[in-house]
Every structure is written in structure tokens, then in C-alpha cells.
């Protein structure tokens, strides 16, 4: 799977952005090369990613609860934020 880091001239940046391509910001060469440039391109990859995300979510939920109740895990209804 391709995973290039592209450095583009400013003049062409707008057109490339419209096409949905990556733009590496100035001074961010190391971040762009190690950043989340991968994309999900197959159904199998999508399923694996969902499983990973669910596991991360469950782990984060348990850690958050243990921090807030001093080590005991208690079921608490969560709330949502950050979406419309």
C-alpha cells in the first residue's frame, strides 16, 4: 500500500487539497512521515480497525472509571460530545 509523504509547492496546494491529497506542513517533516498517513482500503482492514477501536474504547472506559472512583470499576452511563 502506498504511503508517500508529499511536499508540494504552495501554488499547487489548493488544487491538491481539493483532490484530497496529503499536504505536509512546513517544519513537520518528521511528524508527517510518522503520522497516521495509512488509510483503510479493504473490508478486512475495516473490520480489523473496528475491532481495535472497540478494544481501545473499552480500555479507555475502564481506565477513566477507575481513576474517577479510586480503583473500583462501576458501570456509568456515558455522555457524548464533539458531534453535531
Amino acid at each position: 500500500m502506498e504511503n508517500p509523504t508529499r511536499k508540494v509547492a504552495a501554488a499547487g496546494a489548493a488544487a491538491l487539497l481539493a483532490a484530497g491529497l496529503v499536504v505536509a506542513g512546513a517544519g513537520a517533516a518528521s511528524a508527517s512521515e510518522s503520522g497516521p498517513a495509512e488509510r483503510i482500503t479493504s473490508a478486512a482492514q475495516l473490520k480489523d480497525s473496528i475491532r481495535l477501536a472497540v478494544a481501545q474504547e473499552e480500555q479507555a472506559g475502564e481506565q477513566g472509571l477507575s481513576q474517577s472512583v479510586g480503583g473500583r470499576v462501576t458501570k456509568v452511563a456515558g455522555t457524548q460530545s464533539g458531534t453535531c
Binding site: 497516521p36 495509512e38 477501536a53 481501545q56 479507555a60
Partner: peptide, 14 residues
Amino acid sequence: GVRSGQDGRVVYLA
């Protein structure tokens, strides 16, 4: 995308 990246960041679908 899927929130399977580091710290729950989104990994995007092609």
C-alpha cells in the same frame, strides 16, 4: 474513518 489510531485518532477510509 475509524477511531483506531493512536489515542483514538481517526484512521480514514480511502
